[in-house]
Design a protein around this nucleic acid. Structure first.
Lengths: 199, 199
DNA sequence: GGTATAGGTAAACGCTGTTGACCTGTCAAA
DNA sequence: TTTGACAGGTCAACAGCGTTTACCTATACC
């Protein structure tokens, strides 16, 4: 049998599968944003979406699948890599310091706070690899590009993590500016070529 | 009533409370080391220690309490802060790069790998604050000491985290040396004084 | 000897993510 | 028109988790 919503000339846009899937996804997004990931159970999502719990696993494999899908759509690490190479580290530094101040989308903020969850960690790591390390490495080029990319990622991730420990301490504008400068300097140092191999 | 093991001149060294507590703690340490934190359940620990599950919560409040106790004893962040200030960043860099290579105690390695768990994250954060940020900040002194300490911690944490994503990539000796140098340079930059406030 | 109590146990509680069996309505073919 | 297949959905259960409550038992004191 051919499912109606998969036929090219379908008239009714699938009242069932796609609509339900979307409703679940939207509920999950809302709840993850307001409550965090770990604090939201499958049953909560199902209830919010007005569907049965089993559908979550039917459509998304597992609770983690919801997260993967949401992060795939929203993009945890928006396109910072593209753009003028000369201002790359500036953009990254501003993004990082911005995150230090709890900026970013509400979803980003929520997920940063529930970053302890193993599911989230796993998905995040996948995203980080494909949306940060690999493109950055390709963007940089050169023999040591992977190491450079790793160092940059380390600084950025570390900042986010420290923020979770210390809490978001609001800086005055010019302190923030200085911090951004410093972070940019760190990133620049990360990208500096390793000296020519002596051995 | 006065508990025997708490009286100064007790003869039998408490076959009960303390011994049982220690047995639970040792079982937990072993299992956490070999399996990670999240993969070990309260019942597994209890079974391994030959005691009832309820005793874990009786003696340690919760599963997390075991972790807190173990990390308190072993010290996740051994005394790197003390010692010659001139070689501080070198020591930290070597420690960090060592961790990149999966060095450190087996327990450290295991916990690094299961660092996704919320419990572990919470306990780690507490330890990091009291064993890293605060002493480092005190050690450095000066107006901007907390910011410097945060930046240092960010670099160190970030490196650990990136390692989890990329896996431990074994570096050749001289590459490792170069990486250590680079990390040290990053840390030095973290500690550089902010230029005098112009505004 | 009687009794308070520390130490220990068994069984449950409420929750989690996940799964398999079942129902139901629609749509295609005979 | 009847029949059958099947997608979409529901219900109830599973196995596991951390934790808690009620109970038992042996020891140590009065």
């Amino acid at each position: 049998m051919v499912r109606p919503e998969e036929t090219g000339g379908g008239s009714a846009p699938a009242r069932g599968r796609e609509a339900t899937r979307a409703r679940i996804l939207e509920s999950a997004r809302e709840l993850f944003t307001s409550e965090g990931y770990g604090a939201v159970s499958s049953r909560m999502i199902a209830a919010h979406a007005g569907v049965n719990v089993a559908l979550i696993n039917r459509y998304f494999g597992a609770k983690r699948g919801l997260l993967t899908e949401i992060l795939r759509e929203d993009g945890v690490f928006p396109g910072l890599i593209e753009g003028d190479p000369d201002t790359l580290t500036r953009r990254l530094a501003e993004h990082a310091v911005g995150r230090l101040h709890g900026e970013g989308t509400p979803l980003q903020r929520a997920l940063d706070h529930s970053s302890g969850d193993p599911d989230l960690q796993a998905v995040y790591q996948g995203r980080l690899k494909s949306a940060m390390l690999e493109p950055l490495s390709a963007y940089l080029g050169g023999e040591h590009a992977p190491v450079h990319a790793s160092l940059v990622a380390a600084v950025l991730l570390g900042l986010t993590r420290v923020r979770l420990i210390e809490g978001a301490t609001a800086l005055r504008a010019h302190d923030r500016e200085r911090l951004t400068d410093r972070v940019q300097a760190l990133l620049d140092l990360c990208l500096e070529e390793f000296e020519a191999d002596g051995g």
